[in-house]
Each structure stands twice: as structure tokens, then as C-alpha cells.
């Protein structure tokens, strides 16, 4: 899939639309969101005033758990310990930080580069440890996306806001005054038109 297949900024003010477009481009580049946003439509009317931002998202990999990149087993016989054999070293630092926070530094040994021994009760902890979430790329991306839209793109004076956020889309309607139902409906329409384009 291409990045930003649709990128439309509509406004009765042509110059404003052009500069808004360039500022959205800058923000997306700054926060490296270009691979995240698939299709994007913005409508601005400064006279009303209203700012609508609708986008379809491509969030990529879901959260990474310990069992996805390591073998988690009982340790040596008769000892209260869990042995973790890591396949992908890329996550070791994050894993260690999580383990230290949870079990304490003194309870974790690393006899080999790819082997970790955690001193804890294996019967109670084994399953929980397999499900331990090491990285949440989607959540991080969503945080950056909210930073981009709410704190950088939407004009600052537009303090009244309504938003919808899911793993597949984001919709922001913002204004200086009370939001009108027709703006919300327009936002929904814009999102629908993006979805139609996506499915076509």
C-alpha cells in the first residue's frame, strides 16, 4: 500500500488550505507518521469556524509479548526459577527493564547473552510471564498521532473538540464555538467517503 493515498485539504480560503496542507506535511514528517496515515481528508472553514480532520490508519504490528520472541520454561529442577531463552536480541533491553521493575534486580541473572534466569515461583508466574507485553508499537503510534493532531495541527483557538479514535480511523471536529450537529455529520461523511475509496 502507498503512503497517503488520499490527501485533501478543503477550504473556502485557498491560500489557507495550501499553508495548512504544508503544515500537516511538516507535522507528519516530524513525528514520522507518514506510514501510519493511509488516507486523509481535512475541511477548514475559518468563517464558521470549524476544523474537521478525518483519516484512515494503518497501525502495523500489534503489541509484542514475551512468548513471541522467547522460550519461557521452568528453571533447573528443584529450584524456584524461570528460564527465558531469547531468540531476538532486539527486545532484550526493554525486557530487562520490565523484569527489573517487576521482580527486582537481585532476582534476575543473565548467565549467557541470550539466557535469563528469574528467581520466582514458576507455578504461579509462568503463564503471566509468557503474556508479558514488552512493546506496544500501536499505542506509541497513537500517542504520536494525538500529539500531531490535537497539539500541532488543529488551530489553537479551536478549543471545543469532539474526537473518535480507533485502531482503524481517527476523526476530530474542532471549533471555537459550540459544535453544530451538521459538522459532526460532515465529519462522518468525510470518513465514509475515505472508507469507500479504500474499499473500491
Amino acid at each position: 500500500m502507498e503512503q497517503l493515498e488520499t490527501f485533501i485539504v478543503e477550504s473556502p480560503d485557498a491560500v489557507g488550505a495550501k499553508t495548512t496542507r504544508s503544515l500537516i506535511m511538516d507535522t507528519i514528517a516530524d513525528l514520522s507518521l507518514s506510514r501510519v496515515i493511509g488516507r486523509l481528508r481535512v475541511f477548514v472553514d475559518p468563517v464558521e469556524p470549524v476544523f474537521i480532520f478525518a483519516a484512515l490508519l494503518r497501525l502495523g504490528t500489534p503489541s509484542i509479548k514475551l512468548k513471541d520472541f522467547a522460550k519461557v520454561d521452568m528453571g533447573s529442577l528443584g529450584k524456584d526459577e524461570i528460564k527465558i531463552e531469547i531468540d531476538k536480541e532486539a527486545f532484550t533491553v526493554k525486557l530487562l527493564n520490565k523484569l527489573w521493575a517487576r521482580y527486582g534486580k537481585e532476582n534476575i541473572e543473565q548467565p549467557d547473552k541470550k539466557v535469563l534466569i528469574v528467581k520466582t515461583d514458576p507455578i504461579k508466574e509462568l503463564d503471566a510471564m509468557r503474556e508479558l507485553v514488552i512493546e506496544e508499537p500501536q499505542q506509541e503510534v497513537l500517542d504520536r498521532l494525538i500529539d500531531a493532531i490535537a497539539l500541532r495541527i488543529i488551530p489553537e483557538g479551536f478549543r471545543v473538540r469532539k474526537h473518535e479514535l480507533s485502531m482503524s480511523h481517527v476523526l476530530f471536529v474542532a471549533s471555537e464555538d459550540t459544535l453544530k450537529p451538521e459538522w459532526l455529520a460532515k465529519g462522518k461523511d468525510m470518513l465514509e467517503s475515505l472508507r469507500r475509496e479504500e474499499n473500491a
Binding site: 480560503d13 491560500v15 489557507g16 499553508t19 495548512t20 477548514v44
Partner: peptide, 14 residues
């Protein structure tokens, strides 16, 4: 000051 430069935004109406 001697002069104030107000740095405003994108839209004519605003």
C-alpha cells in the same frame, strides 16, 4: 518596544 511584530496564521478571515 519600538515596534511589535504579531505573527499570525493561515486564514484571511481569522
Amino acid at each position: 518596544h519600538d515596534v511589535a511584530v504579531f505573527i499570525l496564521g493561515n486564514y484571511e478571515h481569522c
